[in-house]
Simulated assay, not measured.
Amino acid sequence: MKMEGAAMSSTWRGSAALAALTATALLAAQLGTATPAAAAPGPPPGSIASMGDSISRGFNACGWYVDCPSRSFSTGTDSAVNSQYLRIKAVNPAINGRNLNDAKSGAKVADMPGQAATVVSQGAAYVTILIGANDACTSSEASMTSVAAFRSSLDSALGTLKAGLPDAKVQLISIPDIKRLWQVGSASSSARSVWSLFGVCQSMLANPSSTAAADSARRDRVRQRVADFNGQLASACTAYGANCKYDGGAVFGYQFTLSQVSTWDYFHPNASGQAVLASITYAAGFGW
């Protein structure tokens, strides 16, 4: 189902974006990743494409269980979201109309090579990639993607981009902390009911009211898998070279609240969540 393949986010507020970035150094130490270096100034791109899953598609941001690309944090056109695309457009009007959303709700990292090939065919100058929540947020802990398989698919996708678009800028965005969703939602009877009814992210959200040691340990292991994926994103970006920018764990480190999650599924971000995601990711980007 779509929600299982989506990245989880929140109605993040712009004032919190700076706090998230301030905490990046501590977070990086926890994940064993480097903090993002100061972005070198450079000309803003003339086109943008998004790769990823339902968060990049704006799923549940403007309607009942439908994609809403106009409210995507990456390529959206809704002024209230103020996407990366609109922020770039403000400094480079030539990008107008050259916003391509190639993400797909339900996608996993194994789908990234195919999306990368599409982006190459479009000749995008800048690419955002937010992927991996699906690979940890599955029907059970046992069905999570392995770290090795995650890196293999990621490297394949990045190899396609680098070969086909050697001058394009690429931003790799950290996977949100899905344990945070359990922390803020487990006390809500509405959230618990929706999670159970629709089988949302059962690797993390099964038995949400349980305080048993086995359930606590399972949640910690799933969170660690997300942290491990983020470590691979950081490492792969370093290997890619100067044209790649990792967000330094800024999205993973953001402490959202339940009020910042769609009440339709208690899983996806609403429009204001997309807005703060745009703020956080752009601030952790190339500095245009």
Rank of each mutant, 00 (worst) to 15 (best):
Phe73Gly: 08
Gln255Lys: 06
Phe286Ser: 14
Ser153Ala: 14
Asp247Arg: 03
Ser54Met: 02
Ala125Ser: 15
Met8Thr: 05
Thr138Ala: 14
Ser188Met: 05
Thr138Gln: 15
Arg221Lys: 07
Ser190Met: 07
Val170Thr: 10
Pro176Thr: 00
Tyr266Ile: 00
Val170Lys: 02
Gly287His: 01
Ser186Met: 07
Phe267Tyr: 07
Lys108Glu: 14
Cys68Ile: 05
Met3Tyr: 07
Ala25Met: 06
Ala212Ser: 13
Ala283Gln: 09
Pro166Cys: 12
Gly241Phe: 03
Phe229Gln: 02
Leu165Asn: 10
Thr145His: 05
Gly114Ile: 06
Asp177Pro: 00
Ser156His: 11
Arg192Asn: 15
Met1Thr: 12
Ser56Leu: 06
Ala17Met: 01
Leu205Asn: 08
Ser83Tyr: 04
Gly159Met: 04
Thr138Asn: 13
Tyr65Ala: 15
Gly241Ala: 08
Cys201Trp: 01
Tyr85Phe: 15
Leu277Asn: 07
Gly249Asn: 06
Arg151Gln: 14
Gly123Val: 04
Ala117Trp: 08
Pro69His: 00
Ala148Leu: 13
Ser196Ala: 12
Cys68Leu: 09
Ala17Phe: 05
Val226Asp: 01
Cys237Ala: 07
Leu277Ala: 04
Ser50Thr: 11
Ala116Trp: 03
Ser153Lys: 01
Val127Lys: 01
Thr33Ala: 15
Tyr282Glu: 13
Thr128Trp: 08
Tyr126Trp: 11
Ala17Trp: 04
Arg71Lys: 13
Pro43Thr: 11
Ala242Asp: 13
Asp215Ile: 00
Ala236Ile: 05
Val119Ile: 15
Gly14Thr: 11
Ser50Glu: 10
Arg192Trp: 10
Ser54Ile: 06
Leu205Pro: 10
Tyr266Arg: 03
Arg221Glu: 01
